[in-house]
Structures are given as C-alpha cells and as structure tokens.
Design a protein around this nucleic acid. Structure first.
Length: 583
RNA sequence: CGGGGCGUGGCGCAGUCUGGUAGCGCACCUGCUUUGGGAGCAGGGGGUCGCCGGUUCGAAUCCGGCCGCCCCGACCA
C-alpha cells in the first residue's frame, strides 16, 4: 500500500480528550476517531490490526473444534424475558422498538440467542459437545465509557458458547478454551495472566479472567508470588481466621462515650486516640427486601461483589439514611452491631476475627461504644469474606503477602452449567433416554480491547511498537527524497519485491522531508523499516531497521534487504515468545 | 447518577475575570529555496466563538436554560 492512498491521518500533537497511552496513540497514529461518547470509527490501519487478531483467534479456535457462525445483533425482548434478564440486565442494555412497538435489544452478549438456536436444532447427546463462536459488535450502554476503545459502548468481541451432555465434557472444553486463550494472547504479543474472577451479570460460578498487566488497567489483580494463586479484586479471597470469643481474654466492659458530630472512623479514631483497625464498621445493606448489618474492621472496605456472593443474593444496595435511622435509632454514622432489631441479620467479615476491645457506633446519635466484644455483645449469624483486599494481605492458600497489580481484562471464560438452558427449556435426549438440559460454557474475548492492550504493552516515547503478528503492515519502505529519481526508483523496486515475496508492505511515497517521515514511521510502529536515501545508494546500499531497536540499523543491498526482512518476518508472524517486549 | 473540568477555523491553544473590529502555532493552497529525524521565506483560503434565550447602543466575554466531551466512583470484553 502507498501512504498517499492509505488514509493514515496522523497527528503531530496529542488529542486533548485522550488520557491513557493506548487511546492517545491510537488517535495520533491515525487508527481511531471518536464519533460519540464510547463510539468510534476504526480507521484502515486499525482495521488491519483487528483482522489479524481475528485471524489468530479463528486459527486457535478452529484448532479446538469451535465453529464460527454469526448471530443477530438485534434481539427480540421475548428471548431475554425467558431468562429474566430483560429486567435484570437493566440500563446496560440498549433497547429499541420497531414500527409495531415491539421491544428489542442491541445484543450485549448472546447466551439467549445461541441457546434458542441450539434448543431448536440439537436433539441428541450424539450431537454434543458443540462449540459455536462469532466475532461481532456488541452494545453495552456503559455507565462510564472511557479510555478510548478500552471501555466503549460499541465494541468488537469474540464470543463462544459450548454445549455439553455432562460435566466431564464441559470441563474438558473449558480447559481447551483456557489453553486456546493463552495461545491467542501470547501470539498477539501480550504478557498476561489468567486469574480467578467473579462472574458478574453473566452468571455461573467457575470462571477465569485473562488480564494484561499494565498500570493503566481498570481491573485490580492480586497474585501470590509464592504459590501462584491469582484472582481479580471482586474474587480474591482473604485468609480466614476463626474468631475466638472473649472468655479467655481479659475483656473490658462495654462503655458509651460521647462523640458528638464525629461520624467517620477517621474522626472518631482521632478523638479517642484509637487506631482504625480497632474499630468495627457497621454497614447496613438492603438485600432481597431484608436489612443486613455487615461488620468489617474499621480500616477496611467491603467489596459489594464479594458480599453478594457470600450471602448468595443477586443485588446488594446500601440502606438509605431513613432505613438506617429506623434500624439503629440514630443518625447515619453512629450505627453499631449490638442491640439491633431482631429482623436485622448480622454478619461479620473475617477481618474482625480474633479482635476484641473494639470501638463501634452506639446506635445513639452522638455516641460510640468502647470495649465491644464479638461473641459477648453481639453474635454474628455468619462469618463471611467480603473485604476488599489490599496489596500485602496474606494469600488465602499459603499466607504469603499478595502482590496488587492492575490489569486490562481481555478475556473472560465461564462455566455456566444450566443457568440458561434450564429456564429456556433447552434440552437433549441423553444416552439413558431422559431429557436433560444442556450444560453450557461461554467464552468472551475483547478484540478491540486486545488492540489497546497490545499498544499499552508495546510502545515507547515515539509511538507504537507493533508485535509483527498483529502489525497493520510488516515492513515500511521510506524513500527519503521523492525528488531524487534514483531514490524513488530504488524504493519502488524494493516495494514491488516485498510484495512479490508476500510481505505486507507500506511505501511512504509522500513528498515530505525525511524528518517527518521518520517521525510518522515511529508513531505508526511498523515492525520493519527499509530506508532508501541518496547517501546509501552512492554505494548501492539501503538500511534496514527494527522499530523496536532502531539503533541496530544494518546496511544491505536492496535485494539482501528484502530477503533479510522476509526471513525475520516469517519467523515473527506467528507471534509469541520470539518477540521482544517493552513497556 | 454524584463530584471536578472543558467547549473559540481540521488539530492544539490564547482571548472571557475587566463587554467594543476574533488571534497564535500546526495543518491546508500557490510560488521560490531547501532535502537523512516533524525546513525557510513570501502570498493565500477557511471560524454562526457548542445551542437557545436574556441583559446591553454593543456579547466569545455578563445572566439563565439546554446539549456535548473529558477525568474521579459504581458497571465490564
């Protein structure tokens, strides 16, 4: 391709509305333009990258026997009503009505649609297992789209769904997808990590996220440097310690102290000169119509996702200030665990286990209590793990201090079981002659997110450094002076030869000066570069350089240059370990 | 939705406080010179100052409303 025909609108300056590197570079290098909040046009260079990632995904999924198909984007409401998700999914789903006022959604995910297809077409266990996938645009009306393509409202996703007659088969396929994902991300040049995760809206219990570890990532990952345990923040477990009641200890009596106007742990901590870790934070939640008091150590936070899972409820909400007043008889900020109404369920987080002589709200406006003992003054119905971990917390498996890192979630795989097949009546006839609901798995991979993640991990101060396997072009030919007939002629010949050798070549045939061509070449990040100038041609030479190591420039004759690049590109095309990594 | 910020040629910004002829850099067009890391000179084109309303002799500037975009929190591939 010739640059003058390629539509690569590069920018000299950083766009004002882009914060993270990948977003900035995608806009500057002419890959991306915003149309509206969370909605983008992918320009030709970006489309080439996407197609390469698609191809890697296809190869690896075909390899494990998954079959590509295309499901509709427009989904009738009835299908979503069958699983109850028409209401559950909430405002995250883009909805619209047709001319007959029938309701539709723009598909945010496709469990209902594939399950509908399979229940109509698959009758027997003999047709199982079955893995179907598509690469398609998804729509989610995100609360806050951000970081460019990282969280868009419209984005490209590869989603796969597997159907099984039994657990053994589901487990096997789940494992195959897990391996396929590892191969895909490795080939895309990503350093990633798969971690235990929480299932969110999709459902199912066993699931893993694939995280690309970068500081700008939106997700938080905890990993154990010694035993290999790794989990995302909504899933990561705290070490569980049994609580010992105060009997053997020399416990102090429960006493009220005046703390007028001091409603936060920090304020009371300062007033009483007690460390926040000696406090009980009493948080009131509303779940399934019931009020639950959740007790957590004063210096820690509750993770609502973990809380919901620990108590097996779909939705947890903080209780409103009126409800708090009703339950505690005090203003917000003075809730304590003791003497709450009997209909309030009290649960304690393990962060409080083993703690005594605690400070808590007195359930009386303007007062707190000291000397509180769990087991004496309050008996929690359950001990649960709902705390939000922080780096340095002990590993739940081996006790080593956990590392906290940030990551971009590029893939998420789930064992769904019969969560969708059962309500939708999707059954098959098993070997023993009985109708059974399909066991299902589902496997998501954010294609456009992979593009952003790849840039986050492969760039320098001058621009993108594409891994060859997903680079928009493999080699860029730069004639330094378009007014020099022999430079142009040599560059054209090299360009033609590259193409004849099957290399994806970009010829910068713009009449610009050398400096701006180099700057754009760095920005756009094509892995190999052949520079043609009068100076070198004097002695019949051109220069070959890698984008990732510009200093290692080498001189070759034009023919040798093409062969040198070709040999390297062929080796690098498949991606993976041979790629040097930066960032 | 809560909190913070921004909206002025294609891009990046100044001008707004203190109302008075819309400006700078880059990009773009023409010509000459230049040609190995974002060239120089000369000439030129392009802006309802986000939108609607108000105040005023006069509004980019003051007031009110609306819209859009970015950042921080809950959501997720």
């Amino acid at each position: 391709m010739r640059w003058t025909r390629a539509f690569i609108p590069t920018l000299k300056e950083d766009p004002a509305d882009a914060e993270v590197v990948s977003h900035r570079l995608m806009v500057r290098a002419g890959l991306l333009r915003q149309v509206a909040r969370g909605i983008y046009s992918y320009l030709p260079l970006c489309q080439r990258v996407i197609l390469k990632i698609d191809e890697i995904v296809r190869q690896e999924l075909e390899r494990i026997g998954a079959i590509e198909l295309m499901l509709p984007i427009l989904h009738p409401a009835e299908l979503w009503r069958e699983t109850g998700r028409w209401d559950l999914y909430g405002p995250l789903m883009m909805r619209l009505a047709d001319r007959h006022d029938r309701q539709y959604a723009l598909g945010p995910t496709h469990e209902e649609v594939v399950t509908d297809l399979v229940r109509h077409e698959v009758r027997s266990y003999r047709q199982l297992p079955l893995s179907l996938y598509q690469i398609q645009t998804k729509f989610r009306d995100e609360i806050r789209p951000r970081f460019g393509v990282m969280r868009g409202r419209e984005f490209t996703m590869k989603d796969a769904y597997s159907f099984h007659a039994d657990e053994v088969s589901l487990d096997a396929t789940y494992g195959e997808f897990r391996e396929a994902y590892s191969r895909i991300f490795t080939r895309c040049g990503l350093a990633f990590r798969d971690v235990e995760a929480s299932a969110g809206e999709i459902g199912g219990d066993v699931n893993h996220e694939f995280m690309v570890l970068v500081d700008t990532g939106e997700s938080v990952v905890f990993s154990c440097p010694s035993c290999g345990y790794a989990a995302s923040s909504g899933r990561a477990e705290a070490a569980r310690v049994a609580h010992e009641p105060p009997a053997g200890r020399d416990a102090k009596p429960l006493e009220e102290v005046a703390t007028p106007g001091k409603t936060t742990v920090e304020e009371v901590s300062e007033l009483l000169a007690r460390d926040p870790s000696e406090f009980v934070k009493t948080l009131l939640f509303q779940m399934d119509g019931r009020t639950v008091a959740v007790l957590v150590r004063g210096d820690r936070e509750i993770d609502e996702e973990k809380l919901g899972r620990a108590l097996a409820v779909d939705r947890v909400e903080m209780a409103g200030s009126e409800r708090v007043r009703e339950v505690t008889g005090a203003d917000v900020g003075f809730a304590g665990p003791h003497g709450l109404p009997k209909d309030v369920r009290v649960v304690a987080d393990y962060s409080l286990a083993g703690r005594g002589n605690l400070v808590a709200g007195a359930n009386r406006t303007g007062f707190h209590v000291t000397g509180l003992e769990i087991g004496r003054d309050v008996e929690p119905e359950d001990w649960i793990d709902a705390v939000r971990l922080v780096g340095g917390d002990p590993c739940p498996r081996c006790g080593t201090a956990l590392d906290e890192t940030r990551g971009i979630e590029v893939g998420h795989i789930f064992k769904l079981g019969t969560k969708y097949s059962e309500p939708m009546g999707a059954t098959f006839l098993d070997e023993d002659g009985t109708q059974k609901p399909f066991l299902m798995g589902c496997y998501g991979l954010g294609i456009t997110r992979v593009v952003a993640a790849a840039i986050e991990q492969n760039h320098d101060e001058n621009g993108i450094v594409w891994p060859t396997a997903i680079a928009p072009y493999e080699v860029e030919i730069i004639p330094l002076n378009m007014d020099s007939a022999r430079v142009v002629e040599a560059a054209e010949r090299i360009y033609e030869e590259c193409r004849a050798e099957g290399l994806e070549a970009l010829l910068d045939d713009r009449a610009d000066r050398a400096g701006s061509k180099f700057a754009d070449a760095d920005l756009v990040g094509i892995p190999w570069r052949i520079v043609v100038g009068d100076r070198g041609l004097e002695s019949g030479m051109v220069e070959v350089a890698r984008r990732s190591a510009r200093k290692d420039m080498a001189r070759f004759s034009p023919e040798e240059a093409v062969q040198h690049v070709r040999a390297n590109v062929i080796r690098e095309r498949r991606g993976g370990a041979s790629e040097p990594k930066s960032g």
